[in-house]
């Protein structure tokens, strides 16, 4: 059963076609890799799905409900979280406060309640511990290392228990040891029922992590399937891997 269906999605920026008639199907419980050369439209697809930019054509359905035209906060509220290419956290909030910002199903009473009370704070600390960054809970986001910011960003997204998480280059700019930790966290969260769509340039990371790959080139889907099949696909080799 598909959790997210993207149908014939298109987006232009002036004369540049960033996404061209792109269709995707993300099955529940999967880890799908979205790969392609620079400028192929991967991040634009993320921005379209999460409502950061309006689409020109096409439709997107999450759990059979159209999410086209909804804003990022509404889409997050429905259960789609995302991270950014360069880790984005709130630098003047502590790591713990970063964890408590996400809003989903809060209601008026929840918004007016004290931010650091009870169950939510316990969950936030547990998630920080799960990501191995519990020791930095009281530090400001701006004081964390880049790797810690990557982990904090992922941890914060998970606070509202999203069903689908879009990860934009989770391996970008992190050292090999942390890379394996991030992959391990993603696998464990996936085992807990979270579906992932991952944009990544690190082919080793993607091949090891993802159950299926979708290849974009010039805004179009040119191939898809198991990692080993995609790796051997001559169209992909020509368009992306190059050699």
């Amino acid at each position: 059963m598909s959790l997210l269906e993207v149908e014939r999605l298109s987006k232009r920026f002036g004369g540049v076609v960033a996404v061209d008639d792109c269709s995707l199907s993300i099955p529940k419980g999967s880890i799908i890799g979205l790969i392609g050369p620079n400028g192929s439209g991967k991040t634009t697809v993320f921005n379209l799905i999460t409502g950061f930019i309006p689409r020109d054509a096409g439709d997107m359905r999450f759990k059979s409900r159209s999410i086209a035209g909804l804003g990022p906060d509404r889409i997050y509220g429905l259960g789609i979280g995302r991270t950014f290419q360069l880790a984005r956290i709130f630098p003047r909030l502590t790591a713990l406060e970063n964890m408590l910002v996400p809003v989903r199903r809060a209601g008026m009473g929840g918004l007016l309640a004290r931010a650091q009370w009870g169950h939510e704070k316990t969950r936030a600390m547990a998630m920080l511990e799960f990501m191995d960054i519990g020791s930095v809970a009281s530090m400001l986001g701006g004081a964390l290392s880049y790797g810690q910011r990557k982990l904090l960003e992922l941890a914060a997204v998970m606070m509202a228990e999203p069903e689908l998480v879009l990860l934009d280059e989770p391996a970008g700019g992190v050292n090999p040891a942390l890379l394996e930790r991030i992959a391990d966290h993603i696998r464990r969260l996936n085992a807990g029922g979270v579906t992932f769509l991952v944009v990544e340039h690190n082919m080793g990371f993607v091949m090891n992590l993802c159950t299926e790959l979708v290849v974009l080139a010039q805004g179009r889907v040119i191939a898809g399937g198991k990692p080993e099949d995609v790796r051997a696909n001559p169209v992909v080799l020509d368009a992306y891997l190059g050699a």
Partner: peptide, 16 residues
């Protein structure tokens, strides 16, 4: 405070 730090990021984590 999240809006003050990064408004787009705040939207991405559900802040209306």
């Amino acid at each position: 405070l999240a809006i003050r730090d990064d408004e787009d990021k705040a939207m991405a984590v559900g802040v209306p």
